[in-house]
């Protein structure tokens, strides 16, 4: 069995991001970390590969900064890592990204399952996941909270999705693309042995020529980035014992018509 996860490096969530007048985003000296949502997809792909005696491959599309995420994946236990980089990727939109992703999956051996984290935390987008599935012609299931059965022999899987008002169980054929939620697992820490292996691994880089593709015309263009207007908030400490505070709080919430 072969599971592929796409991942990327994103600024540490504790980073203070600023946008300057030219729309350049700066994260100060905050570190880049693996996209937090991808910790779950990486864990799931590694665990599934371990369970089934298969291979977990982590792929990043973009410049060298994304090696950080790939090394994290290797340190956690991914069997292989791969980065796609090409000058033509600058300015690519999600369709461009999905074109590369789909071509990569096709080029890799016998991929049964592609797992994404819920979204990329920095750009807050997930449409590239669905676009990738569409370009591959594979089924897509989002918001997966559990893989109930994965039968590569029979070519099918059964998953549970977590929706706002309950759970849904779906069956689909393989190969497929899914995105997973936080409830699906408890991501492991990288192991010391894994860290050593990862920091010594040389990660192959493929270009668009290696994939034998060119990018489609971008359908969307980023026009402008700006800082959201400052929100002013005030805090007030309610006096009294916890019981008095609770009563005062309820009265206030009722007055403000929140309750």
């Amino acid at each position: 069995m072969h599971v592929v996860t796409f991942t990327r490096s994103t600024p540490d969530t504790a980073a203070r991001l600023t946008v300057d007048a030219d729309g350049c985003v700066s994260q100060g000296d905050a570190a880049m970390v693996v996209n937090p949502w991808d910790e779950y997809s990486l864990e799931e792909s590694i665990a599934q590969a371990e369970d089934q005696g298969g291979t977990a491959t982590a792929v990043a599309i973009g410049p060298e900064v994304h090696e950080e995420a790939l090394r994290q994946a290797l340190a956690m236990g991914a069997n292989a890592a791969l980065r796609i980089d090409d000058p033509a990727l600058a300015g690519a939109d999600s369709i461009g990204w999905a074109t590369v992703a789909a071509a990569t999956v096709r080029r890799l051996d016998d991929v049964d399952l592609v797992i994404f984290g819920k979204e990329a935390v920095d750009v807050g987008s997930d449409q590239h996941q669905i676009q990738t599935a569409r370009l591959l012609g594979w089924p897509f299931i989002g918001a997966v909270s559990r893989i109930l059965e994965l039968e590569t022999g029979a070519g099918s899987m059964r998953v549970e999705r977590s929706l706002e008002h309950g759970k849904q169980v779906l069956t689909c054929r393989l190969p497929a693309v899914i995105s997973v939620l936080k409830d699906i697992n408890e991501p492991r820490y990288p192991s010391f042995m894994g860290i050593r292996r990862a920091s010594r691994a040389s990660i192959p880089v493929w270009s668009l020529a290696d994939l034998e593709i060119t990018l489609p015309q971008a359908l969307t263009m980023e026009m402008k980035l700006e800082e959201p207007p400052q929100r002013l908030a005030e805090a007030e400490l309610l006096p009294g014992t916890p019981a008095e505070q609770a009563a005062a709080l309820i009265a206030r919430l009722e007055k403000e018509q929140v309750l």
Binding site: Y189, P190, S199
Partner: peptide, 16 residues
């Protein structure tokens, strides 16, 4: 110190 040692340190920080 190099990435390998710093990563090991980060792993311990994450754990605690």
């Amino acid at each position: 110190l190099g990435e390998e040692r710093l990563q090991a340190q980060r792993m311990v920080r994450e754990f605690v």
